[in-house]
């Protein structure tokens, strides 16, 4: 969270809405530990990361959907066993759970 504070503050100052995605669970081999944070603003600008780059694109889409109100805040999971493994899975074979929410707190 700390490393993306400057981006959050800049976006807030410019009147942007912000979504926060945080790794809240890792099973097996995962690239980032719980707490790894990525933030996305309503224009799709991104700071930080939640993986080694494997699932960032999907998390940005989820964050934008949460900001748009088409998805509820909640946990999205990515992993080898996922149906979408070939699309956005982790190449390392682990599973990560990412909590995505608007910064409205």
């Amino acid at each position: 969270m700390k490393e993306v504070l400057d981006d959050i503050e800049r976006w807030r100052a410019d009147g942007h809405r912000v979504a926060v995605a945080r790794v809240v669970g890792v099973e097996g081999s995962g690239p980032r530990d719980p707490g790894a944070t990525m933030v996305v603003n309503d224009t799709g600008e991104v700071a930080g990361s939640v993986s080694g780059g494997c699932v960032e694109g999907a998390v940005v889409e989820e964050a934008l959907a949460v900001l748009a109100g088409t998805h509820d805040r909640g946990v999205v999971s990515f992993g080898y066993s996922d149906d979408e493994a070939f699309a956005v899975g982790l190449t390392c074979g682990g599973t990560i759970h990412v909590f995505v929410e608007p910064l409205d707190w």
Binding site: M1, L5, V24, R73, H97
Partner: peptide, 21 residues
């Protein structure tokens, strides 16, 4: 965080009050 003071943030990720802090 900016003052490097300790803090813990608890967030409900599943249950009746998802997102509560």
């Amino acid at each position: 965080l900016r003052a490097e003071e300790p803090a813990a943030l608890a967030t409900v990720t599943a249950g009746p009050t998802v997102g509560a802090k």
